[in-house]
Design a protein around this nucleic acid. Structure first.
Lengths: 198, 198
DNA sequence: TCCTGGATAGTCAGTCCTGACTAAGGAGTG
DNA sequence: CACTCCTTAGTCAGGACTGACTATCCAGGA
């Protein structure tokens, strides 16, 4: 089985990957993450970026290289990846790709509690979701098309392509679900079992 | 926009939902979560269950009802949901269903770094993923069929149905991706750009 | 009878993470 | 020139979360 990573935060993976290219200071890393859209793939704040880099340094995956103060700005510490860090990225990456792990989408939890809502209300909120999903799908398609037009190689767009595939699958699912909820026998059985709640 | 929840942990939602039925002590809640498979939808440990209930109590969504010691076991505190808590579950549930939020699958991050691996290795790890996904799909189908055979209503299986839809979409995506990676021009362009790395 | 392992039930130290803050430079605007 | 807002860059207190631990009961085997 997969042994626990010393710095399990996915942000750490992205940081290590960027440091494979060249040493950088934390803020610069944040900028790269934003420019490449990876900030949308990973949930983090600027402070957690500093925290994670500290953890990586303690784990020996990166090392503080120098503290510079070129402008009158606060001094910046430049970090470089170590050999151990290089090994960690590749090992981690392989394991993430090879083994699907149990993901925990918030929506799944909400679905498991769907029976708490009256059928007509359930239909209504899911219609709103469906519309929002359509918007996201459109956005993602645009992002991909624009990047392709700018000459970005398809390999750097796989994660968008993946997001698109999931969004489309979810939209199909929600559409079917709405149809099921609209069946009159569902409304009836809901009344019978859930009629008496607060 | 969505205001931040006072106890944003998704475990809190499930806890509140169960307490809608009847008052319970934390360990019992854990048992129900496991029995209904919700433990696979939410990442948590037993200690976080106690922590979250404490937070809910501080937020006024639940209230300690009594501390019983029927067996010679450690004493158990029974919690009941409050009116504020009842409101919170429904409000939260509606918002989770209506608004797709940016989910952060680990796999997406890994995909965005796929170019770090040599093409043949990428193909190999993704083949392993594809096989694992096939297994998961099979398992999920079995779970659904068995529950249906036991007379469980479809509404209590929607989350499994959703998981299945996502797994199938992911498998299609991975299959196509493997084909793209096998194209000789990808191997060539990878050599050119990534040939010189550690 | 003793021993082991598993289920029941909960606690806690220490690490992680977030939200809110500090501070300085530059760009635009009247 | 004064004012405001955005970007750059980083810190920090305090709350949240995890892994490891404690302790009891019961069933079954040797």
């Amino acid at each position: 089985m997969e042994r626990r990573r010393r710095v399990p935060n996915p942000l750490a993976l992205a940081v290590l990957a960027w440091l494979m290219w060249e040493p950088m200071h934390p803020y610069e890393l944040g900028r790269r993450l934003k420019q490449t859209g990876q900030d949308k793939l990973i949930r983090y704040t600027r402070s957690s970026l500093y925290m994670v880099i500290e953890q990586l340094a303690r784990a020996g995956f990166v090392a503080a290289q120098e503290t510079v103060r070129d402008t009158a700005r606060p001094e910046r510490t430049v970090y470089a990846i170590t050999d151990e860090g290089r090994h960690e990225v590749l090992d981690w990456l392989r394991s993430l790709l090879a083994q699907p792990r149990q993901e925990h989408p918030h929506f799944a939890v909400a679905l498991s509690l769907l029976s708490l809502l009256p059928p007509d209300e359930a239909v209504e909120v899911l219609r709103r979701r469906s519309a929002a999903l359509a918007g996201r799908i459109e956005e993602t398609r645009t992002t991909i098309d624009e990047a392709r037009a700018d000459g970005v190689g398809w390999i750097f767009l796989v994660e968008e392509q993946y997001a698109l595939a999931l969004l489309e699958a979810e939209r199909r699912f929600v559409t079917e679900l709405i149809e099921s909820l609209k069946q009159p026998d569902y409304a009836k059985s809901w009344q019978e079992t859930m009629g008496g709640r607060a």
